[in-house]
């Protein structure tokens, strides 16, 4: 009942807003359309290994070329925006958890599970940012305040709204990670063709992004399972949050 209702009530502009969401969250097969063959439990360390023959570790291949300015800028802004995103995610869950678990104590393990995964992602990107000497976003304090406010606000509106918030954020984030993986694979392709290939740390980054993307989409599934679609008015809430996410991604990539 609820889902067809949502579709019939959607205005044309919100339909446009939702199109990528449907292609991501409608079927779990299409969800992993970007070809991750890694099972969920796979560690990032194992994922880059399937292509050892092209790896110039043997010494006979041409040396790796330096990264171009565009590539370095892409990688910096990618790591910067990912760190900001995971910071926001941990703060959203931190703010939501006390309110959600008080009204629905059975959600405690789920909230803890999602929070722990987000903390893991945040730590991953923190160490990557430090290792690659990327500048963290200057909007850090603003994102901290806004995301904690978003988490608290949606949790105040009830469990459904909190889950709708998760649904909206994770949809946007899933899209965003897919875009980054796509760019990285294109970059790897260019490097293979140009000789030298891609360094192990970048291959590992692809694996890390795939793992994190899958975990984020898992959160999306959890949110939908826990009545995210029952939030009122669902289209307005998710549309608003996704617009905010898009704006935050745009800003964090730049400053």
């Amino acid at each position: 009942m609820k889902i067809p209702l949502r579709h019939s009530m959607m205005s044309r502009s919100s339909a446009r807003l939702f199109r990528p969401a449907r292609h991501i969250c409608s079927s779990s097969g299409a969800k992993r359309a970007l070809g991750t063959s890694i099972p969920k439990a796979a560690t990032p360390a194992t994922s880059p290994s399937p292509s050892p023959p092209t790896n110039p570790e043997g010494g006979e291949a041409r040396p790796r070329r330096p990264l171009t300015k565009e590539e370095r800028e892409f990688l910096s802004s990618a790591l910067r925006v990912n760190q900001a995103g995971e910071l926001a995610a941990t703060l959203i869950y931190t703010a939501q958890t006390p309110l959600v678990t008080r009204s629905d104590p059975h959600l405690k393990p789920l909230m803890k599970h999602m929070y722990d995964q987000e903390v893991g992602h945040f730590d991953t990107f923190n160490s990557l940012i430090a290792k690659h000497r990327v500048r963290p976003t200057a909007m850090y304090p603003l994102w901290s305040v806004l995301s904690a406010g978003l988490g608290w606000g949606t949790a105040m509106m009830g469990r459904e709204a909190a889950m709708a918030c998760t649904e909206a954020v994770e949809t946007e984030i899933g899209d965003h990670y897919n875009g980054q993986i796509r760019s990285l694979l294109e970059m790897a392709d260019r490097m293979e063709r140009g000789g030298g290939g891609m360094g192990p740390e970048l291959k590992e980054l692809v694996g890390t992004l795939r793992r994190i993307r899958d975990e984020e989409l898992e959160h999306l599934d959890h949110a939908v399972e826990h009545d995210a679609k029952k939030a009122e008015p669902h289209w307005l809430l998710t549309g608003f949050i996704r617009l905010g996410c898009k704006g935050a991604i745009y800003a964090s990539e730049r400053v």
Partner: peptide
Amino acid sequence: AQRRTFHSTDHPPPP
């Protein structure tokens, strides 16, 4: 010389 954007350890530094 090192640049500030994305410092890679297994690709050579840019010119």
